[in-house]
Design a protein around this nucleic acid. Sequence first.
DNA 1: GTCTATACTGAGATAGAC
DNA 2: GTCTATCTCAGTATAGAC
Lengths: 194, 194
Amino acid sequence: MKIFDTRTRQGEICNAAVELFYQKGYHATGMRELSTLLGMTAANLYNFFPSKEELLYHVLEHVITVFIDNVRSVIDLNADPVTQLTAAITANIRFHGENQKEALVSDSELRGLQGEMLQRVLEYRDKFEYEFRGILERGIQAGCFAPVNPKLTAIAILTMCTQVAYWYRPQGVWTLEDIAENYCNFVMIGLRPL
Amino acid sequence: MKIFDTRTRQGEICNAAVELFYQKGYHATGMRELSTLLGMTAANLYNFFPSKEELLYHVLEHVITVFIDNVRSVIDLNADPVTQLTAAITANIRFHGENQKEALVSDSELRGLQGEMLQRVLEYRDKFEYEFRGILERGIQAGCFAPVNPKLTAIAILTMCTQVAYWYRPQGVWTLEDIAENYCNFVMIGLRPL
DNA sequence: GTCTATACTGAGATAGAC
DNA sequence: GTCTATCTCAGTATAGAC
């Protein structure tokens, strides 16, 4: 399932942009090049997005909100912390493996944004990190997890998941399920209370 | 201790390049801009490096070799796997925290390279990953570690360390020693044989 | 929504004097 | 090693017709 709606011209532009940003990076990608890939003129792109940076913003904003909704939707608020953490890690890895290019771009091209557009994306990210950390904190409180530092550990775990977008190969030896299972085991054992 | 020799003009150029690549990215940095920062003309840069890409290559190659030597030097070949892994993780995190900009650039600007220059840097990286994985494999063999998948786990651990360059703040709450200790604990418990 | 045409700027890079 | 001057090309973006 594609993240951007391929039935609209805007969605097509975003998908093509992701493809090029993924291959060469945001700054190395030209509007001319993007328009060629889409079979249209560069000028026409400006009928959809007022600037290249706004295009990037639209892409990043959309990817991160879909990602967050995605992870939130698998977390049962009534479940115990171990179940919640397992679900969060699994969904996180799956997203970064199934939407590899989108995820990688949204992770690596943040620096292409400035000012308010940057702030808005950062808010999403911080909010998500906060929610994720909450699972760890409640687990520690409840005695399901060892009393680790929640913030550091949250970063460590999220980092591991995010990076899957960089090295995962769909044709490779491991499926996303393998990776998720492996990482969940690693984390759960690492968090086991003594 | 700076990675590039500040007594040579080449070293100065590399340090300035790292600074700008860190702030804005490789593609967003202009040769004019770089030369201004150095107090020279853009034309003069070409007396040191034949192209912008060669400059990037020189930076990345130097950073990765210093990094690898750095980690290798702390690993006692006669020590047990747990000691070796602890030393490797600690040195890794220290390098990425103490040479934050250099490490971040060398991690994120690889895509700026093409062809043979890219291949050469990738070889360094693969070789290092191979050596690191060896520690895990010997530890599993010896029964010090649980029988995890060595390749996946090596990636997970290295990723956690590398990413320190992205979020660590020298003025922050945690020292690099705190982070290293925390991560080592997390990993060692996660690898504890049942 | 899409085009042609083009303005304007800055990029990387080179030649050749000093 | 450093400069001035300059080439060439590609970048983002706009105006205005259809």
